[in-house]
Design a binder for these strands. Sequence first.
DNA 1: ATATATTCGTTGCGTATGCAACATAATAAT
DNA 2: ATTATTATGTTGCATACGCAACGAATATAT
Lengths: 154, 154
Amino acid sequence: MQFDKTLGKHITSLSYLLSKQLNKLLSERNSGITSDQFRLLSNLWRKDGITQQKLAIYIGRDRASVTRMITILEDIGIVTRIANNTDKRVNLIYLTKKGRELEPIAWQCVQESLSLVTKGFNTEEIALFEQLLIRASDNLKPVVCSTIKSKLSK
Amino acid sequence: MQFDKTLGKHITSLSYLLSKQLNKLLSERNSGITSDQFRLLSNLWRKDGITQQKLAIYIGRDRASVTRMITILEDIGIVTRIANNTDKRVNLIYLTKKGRELEPIAWQCVQESLSLVTKGFNTEEIALFEQLLIRASDNLKPVVCSTIKSKLSK
DNA sequence: ATATATTCGTTGCGTATGCAACATAATAAT
DNA sequence: ATTATTATGTTGCATACGCAACGAATATAT
């Protein structure tokens, strides 16, 4: 059996190459952020002032990961942790000026990377590809996320 | 703009969920290995006694990553580094008995994970999905790997 | 033959991630 | 009201990865 010829290999490779390509662009344009940090920030650009727990759910990682990412982003002056009076357990995460200014540059890198991915694809192929990816993800979500749920409620 | 609605998000999510699902199975069946280690081992099961450099190319990671993974796999008794007389720079990596015995268990986990991914897909859809993934990867490979090449030959 | 370049594996530093264990705070149960 | 449960963020330990720098070994150039 050869893993090279499985669907799993192709999925893994594509995702890996995409993040590497995006990291390359983000670095070349001196954005100062990584592709993973982009994933987190994209939620804050839409709406900031949210808790780390919510961010964790949005990006599909655990709270510990968000803690560490926010610490880094805070150190480089992109976000700030603001304590909350009504619920003293949580931090609300806000973008700084610098963090807000990053949005167009980062999005430009993402758009270019995605254009490269779909080079030579026609509109229907892109739509089809997207549907197949979503269906595949939806097949996995219940199984993988059941673990998370049971853990949260344990 | 919302990253959630981009192709990039769907690619990243699927790959992430797949590796998480595979890790879950590999752990439940007490394989003792991770999905990343599987990726490396799948090459050795096909043919062992190869150099770390070759393994790095096969799995698409750098030499440093392979060094670290092999160290771990050696510690848990799955592979061994054997010095080479004809070229004293290299280590040849061989599977141990334990490493060889792992193959069927690990493959079973991979097959089950992949079945789950394509649940509800007909044969044509699977083939199409595979083709789209390959085309997308092929779009990125030259760009991403050119960096590696120029770095290797620097 | 000797100097230069290249290859291979390793290590340091930084980032990303999971899981488990904790402390603190808020909520539910009694 | 007090106790038990749950939620939130943090930290420790383990794995994975890139890049850069390094030493040792090999190959190439002159």
